[in-house]
Design a protein around this nucleic acid. Structure first.
Length: 287
DNA sequence: TCCCAGAGTCAGCTACTAAT
DNA sequence: ATTAGTAGCTGACTCTGGGA
């Protein structure tokens, strides 16, 4: 019986990543049976089931998940080795898949990405957007190399790198006054509406009134611009959104609500080279 | 019920390796 | 150099489930 080889791992990883044998076959330019047989060979030689087949679909077993995790590291190391042996390790190629919120992508990422692309023009960046749970799932499933989240607390199962932190700001349309009976535009996600309510109650002794709770700070910014309410957003948005101004007199209570920007991934050794370099550059500069 | 997509099976081919 | 065994691939085909 042969030992598992690198093609077996490659085929298995791609199938697990794409959740489809046919899609993996297409991506790797081989036939679908080749993928199917490679996975069976892996199961035979490892003596465990890697996939659970159900209704024309499959899902990973616990062993399959473990193997996927380990094989990513092995394949990434192999890519590095190949590049090194070719004597062209200074030229970084491949994809860089980042999962984050649209706010981070809009306000924080472009400058960092621009610098990175200037140094590594061969890398193909790819951005995915979502909520914190969606970002976590994109990273966990391997669809994204790493995620950037704005969250108070750390997520279990991920390695974290703190990129920055700050406080919240109340914003209103430039030229307008703080309203006598403010209605707030805030997100449901933490930190957001719940923390605002507590802080507002401590500050005024009354309940905060919501104009709208939405999942997206850019939408909040736009609605604030239209005068639909007082936006409650992280300071980096307040500072960079033209047409809005911070309600300075309110920020002694708002800025006490803090956020942290974390970069999350499944482990340094599992990152492909472009991702490792980008993570390193973010870690040095932060946001 | 039909059609389509995805996954599995099978036969046959090629490439490689070890034995003679 | 030849031969046999093994591994891995492909194309053709079948089976199954979901959706129109």
């Amino acid at each position: 019986m042969s030992e598992p080889n690198i093609y077996h791992l490659k085929y298995f990883s791609k199938a697990a990543e794409l959740q489809s044998l046919a899609a993996a076959a297409k991506a790797l330019n081989v036939s679908q049976p080749a993928i199917s047989q490679a996975i069976r060979k892996l199961e035979d030689t490892l003596g465990c089931e890697l996939l659970l087949h159900t209704k024309n679909r499959f899902k990973l077993t616990e062993e399959g998940r473990l193997l996927l995790e380990k094989s990513r590291g092995i394949l990434a190391q192999l890519e590095d080795l190949k590049a090194e042996l070719k004597g062209r390790s200074e030229i970084v190629t491949g994809s860089l898949s980042i999962a984050t919120s649209s706010a981070v992508a809009h306000y924080l990422l472009p400058a960092r990405l621009k610098d990175f692309m200037k140094a590594h023009g061969e890398v193909q960046p790819e951005l995915h957007f979502g909520s914190v749970p969606e970002i976590a799932e994109l990273v966990r499933s391997g669809k994204a190399d790493f995620g950037i989240i704005i969250e108070e607390n750390r997520l279990p199962g991920f390695e974290h790198r703190l990129l920055g932190e700050g406080g919240f700001t109340c914003v209103i349309r430039t030229g307008s006054q703080w309203p006598a009976a403010p209605r707030f535009l805030a997100t449901q996600e933490s930190p957001g509406w719940t923390e605002l309510q507590k802080a507002w109650r401590r500050h005024t002794g009354t309940d905060a009134r919501a104009a709208l709770t939405v999942e997206n700070w850019e939408v909040i910014s736009q609605m604030s611009l239209l005068g639909m309410g007082v936006g409650f957003v992280p300071d980096f948005i307040a500072e960079n959104q033209s047409g809005l101004k911070a309600a300075e007199e309110q920020n002694h209570w708002a800025s006490k609500i803090r956020y942290k920007i974390y970069l999350i991934h499944l482990g340094e050794h599992q990152l492909a080279k472009p991702a490792r370099l980008f993570v390193k550059s973010l870690g040095q500069q932060g946001f």
